[in-house]
Write a protein that binds this DNA or RNA. Structure first.
Lengths: 138, 138
DNA sequence: TATTGTTATACTCTATAACTATA
DNA sequence: TATAGTTATAGAGTATAACAATA
């Protein structure tokens, strides 16, 4: 039997995993000339457009920060602002086609880079998925 | 049997775990008036003093960044610079007693915050530890 | 009155390049 | 000459506070 790791040991390993994963994502984003925050924003928008306010909430930053981030993405034609029809105060941010391509490219690189997952069997993947869901419930 | 998650699903969950863990650490650090980079630096120094150069390497940032980070920590008496005896170009950075207290406090809060780990049995902890080691080898 | 987005401000992090003092 | 640390610089992220437009 393998020894039972202490909470501290698991935290340390998780922190290491976090750092590794984070570094991979940052590197993939940097390859396309994007910062981490910009890439995260595109990633959130990949599933659906979102208002400035909800973007700030999802990315866990102040709403005032989104203005600059979206400004820079819009300047590169990766996103566009659209005034909401139902509430003219709201601006919905949507990916352009170029924006979709960029985030898809980053995601593909991530899949190729993170080869550690390829070391797991199907059963092990399912188990890791389950355990992480327990530790980090959504 | 549980369904086998796709690589993309696992990546997404890992990203979520990353974000959660990162947010917890950032919040714990902020409670003591520290930024993430500052808290990480204290964490690295908790085990042993280190030169500016090796700190930059460990924290994966340019050496020039360490000057400012250590300046701010030193201004608050959390660390101190000591010129190396063997090589007078080198400055070893060490935690002060106050610095030790601060990082220990942050770590204690992290342990209390991350209750998700408490949801796992001993066997599950051991298995999560093993799987993460395979995915993120050191 | 409350909310959405923006602006202004100040601080921190980040990389690059040039500098100094040592080796 | 090579290396360790610093400085100068510029761009980006961050929070706070105040503001205009809209609800």
């Amino acid at each position: 039997m393998s020894p039972i790791p202490s909470k501290a040991q698991l935290m340390e390993l998780l922190a290491h995993s976090v750092t590794t994963h984070y570094a991979d994502f940052t590197a993939s984003a940097a390859d396309t000339g994007l910062t981490t925050s910009q890439a995260k924003t595109l990633s959130v928008l990949r599933s659906a457009p979102a208002s400035m306010r909800s973007l700030a909430h999802t990315l866990a930053c102040d709403a005032s920060n989104m203005t600059g981030i979206i400004d820079r993405l819009e300047k590169r034609d990766l996103v566009r602002r659209e005034v909401s029809i139902t509430d003219r105060r709201v601006k919905n941010v949507a990916l352009t086609e170029a924006g979709e391509k960029v985030i898809d490219t980053i995601r593909e690189r991530m899949e190729q880079t993170q080869t550690g997952l390829d070391n797991l069997s199907d059963d092990e993947r399912a188990e890791l998925f389950r355990l992480l869901t327990v530790v980090f419930p959504r």
